[in-house]
């Protein structure tokens, strides 16, 4: 009887190991394919040239790379004040029913599908302006970025020891100066981490840009017109029937993945440094 149980135990653990292998295979395949297909299509032109029309080979996605940065920049301008100030509220004054409900709703907001924020940005910006624009894309990304920034700001400010606040207040520094100059300053590394996570997420979003920022094969001249983004180009090129375009879609996927990889390594580095200080 014990033998049977022993065998069963080993067999079930073997199943666990098998599931690890099964889970790893597709993920490694995705990395491998993106790296190998991406690198063969990647060259300097990709970063410096405009997209070429159908039938002409070469060209690059320079405008899309800049476009993604601009869209994320607009998203940051809108989401940073809201995210950081509401995070400060939740951390410093939010120990009440209102704070709890805002915290809960922020969590709920972080689960809203990105395509839905695109629809909201469409009804909010595109319909009144009557055309697609970089602003609309930025609004959609900002809605996605707010919850991450709010919650990390709150969590990071809460880690600052209470004695810091007491010491500052005892020295006669007013509460708001204490919060901004001491508490926020001390937790700045963590807050920046949250912002970078939000940026990484926003930079990889496609769905909310499809019908807000749309796409643009040329350089944009103003922000109230459609603008290119790396992700939308990857999508359009990926589903196209042209080999040149498909190759560039892989290259775009690789560049996007490397951008996000760099960001998350930077985040790792920042947090590790903070832990060492403590």
């Amino acid at each position: 009887m014990f033998r049977y149980r022993k065998i069963k135990s080993t067999a079930l653990y073997a199943l666990c190991v098998a599931s690890v292998l099964l889970a790893l295979i597709p993920l490694l395949l995705i990395f491998y394919r993106t790296l190998s297909f991406g690198f063969t299509a990647l060259n300097l032109d990709f970063f410096t040239q405009l997209p070429k029309p159908v039938g002409e080979s070469g060209g690059g996605l320079a405008n899309a790379i800049v476009g993604t940065m601009i869209l994320v920049g607009i998203g940051c301008c809108l989401s940073l004040p809201v995210g950081i100030l509401s995070g400060i509220y939740l951390s410093e004054y939010g120990q009440n029913v209102f704070g709890t409900s805002v915290r809960f709703l922020t969590d709920v907001l972080s689960g809203v599908p990105s395509i839905v924020t695109g629809v909201v940005a469409y009804t909010l910006v595109v319909i009144p302006m009557k055309h697609f624009s970089a602003y609309a894309g930025g609004v959609a990304l900002a809605i996605l970025m707010i919850p991450t920034i709010t919650r990390t700001t709150e969590e990071m400010m809460k880690t600052v020891p209470h004695s810091y606040r007491e010491a500052a207040l005892a020295l006669g520094i007013s509460e708001w100066k204490t919060t901004l100059r001491i508490i926020l300053r001390t937790s700045l590394g963590g807050v920046v981490t949250g912002v970078m996570l939000a940026i990484a997420r926003a930079a990889g979003e496609t769905a909310p840009l499809l019908f807000t920022a749309l796409n643009n094969r040329f350089w944009h001249t103003t922000l109230d017109q459609p603008i290119a983004s790396l992700t939308v180009f990857i999508y359009n090129y990926g589903v196209s029937p042209f080999d040149d375009w498909i190759a560039q879609a892989w290259a775009g996927a690789l560049v996007l993945m490397l951008m996000i990889l760099l960001l998350s390594i930077a985040v790792r580095f920042a947090t590790r440094k903070r832990y060492h200080e403590h």
Binding site: P81, V82, L85, S86, I88, Y89, L90, E92, Y93, G94, F98, G99, S101, V102, L105, T106, V108, L109, V112, V116, T117, V120, I143, I146, P147, T150, S174, E175, W176, K177, T179, L180
Partner: peptide, 25 residues
């Protein structure tokens, strides 16, 4: 104290903005 009140209400307004955002969506 005046500064504290302003700051507190400012942050509260932005927290309220999140609540408003969901309702507005």
């Amino acid at each position: 104290n005046y500064g504290d009140t302003i700051f507190r209400n400012l942050t509260r307004a932005f927290a309220f903005l999140i609540l408003l955002l969901i309702v507005f969506m």
